[in-house]
């Protein structure tokens, strides 16, 4: 690990990821063993330890990915520390039978540490998700708020359990809020990363000069059979080789189609066009009118 708190060496981060992968494998195997009733008390404890370590390393991987981008590093280190603290308390809970009297308090500390570390790591990961539309930006923001709301309700419920039961109607209101924020957090956490790579993250839907699912006349690279294939995962009609076809039109980051654009800057946003994406004006016989990009 580097001496500077804001940096994280690639090799160390790789080891953390490998450790996480190994822990996930161990946890899955132990859970399978428990399902098949190959268990005893010791095995149950081992599964719990493995699950806690997996959770802890999951936080490390998420926080590490954010730290490597030199983004809110101090908060991410705090998240890692809280995960370690949570795991330590969880170990006491799992193995330390003699701490029975303090079980409730240790449990509260475990929940608090894990809830805070997960919420921090989640916010860190979501903060590096780049959004280009207001809809996605607010979805991201709402998910982050819901995760924190959910975490806060869980922490408060564990610390003031007795008070909650005496609240009557307010207890159910808080329970509604907790259940809703949990649902929204799960949905948002799944949707936002997917939406990031979709058209939902494009400010303008730009017309294409060709359909994304146009059929292409080509020879199979394996058997040289000439055929018409659609884009995506397809099979050669002759040798049945699996072929992946993707067509992409060079575009500016703002979505402007760079087809037949002469010049170095995007006329829409003024960004410098990358050399690799520049259109070379060597073409002949292309109708300029049909290739004109339209923005809706």
């Amino acid at each position: 690990m580097s001496a500077q708190p804001s940096s994280l060496k690639g090799s160390f981060f790789k080891k953390v990821i490998i450790a996480f992968v190994v822990l996930v494998c161990i946890t899955i195997l132990l859970l399978i063993a428990l399902t098949l009733e190959l268990n005893d008390d010791w095995m149950e404890k081992l599964t719990a330890v493995s699950a806690m370590l997996t959770l802890c390393f999951g936080v490390f991987v998420s926080a590490g990915a954010v730290i490597r981008r030199k983004h809110i590093a101090s908060l991410m280190w705090l998240s890692c520390v809280l995960a370690v603290v949570g795991t330590f308390f969880a170990f006491i809970l799992i193995w330390g039978d003699h701490y029975y009297d303090a079980e409730e308090t240790v449990g509260r500390f475990t929940i608090t540490s894990f809830a805070l570390s997960i919420a921090l790591a989640h916010s860190g990961i979501f903060s590096i998700v780049s959004t280009h539309t207001r809809l996605l930006f607010f979805t991201k923001l709402a998910t982050m708020v819901c995760v924190w709301l959910c975490g806060t309700v869980i922490i408060v419920m564990f610390w003031y359990e007795d008070l909650f039961w005496s609240m009557g109607g307010i207890f159910w209101t808080i329970l509604y809020i907790a259940s809703f924020s949990t649902l929204a957090s799960i949905v948002g956490t799944i949707i936002v990363p997917i939406a990031m790579v979709s058209h939902a993250n494009k400010e303008y839907i730009v017309n294409e000069s060709i359909s994304s699912r146009v059929k292409i006349l080509l020879e199979c690279p394996k058997c040289a059979k000439r055929q018409e294939l659609s884009s995506g995962n397809v099979r050669c009609s002759d040798c049945k080789a699996s072929i992946f076809i993707e067509i992409e039109e060079p575009r500016c980051e703002c979505g402007y189609l760079l087809y037949q654009l002469q010049g170095n800057n995007c006329p829409e946003c003024g960004r410098l066009v990358r050399e690799s994406e520049k259109w070379e004006p060597t073409s002949v016989g292309i109708d300029l009118e049909t290739a004109k990009p339209d923005v809706e």
Partner: peptide, 13 residues
């Protein structure tokens, strides 16, 4: 494409 610069990815899986 040599003429219109359309990017085409074809991979054998």
């Amino acid at each position: 494409c040599d003429q219109c610069s359309l990017q085409i990815r074809v991979q054998l899986a």
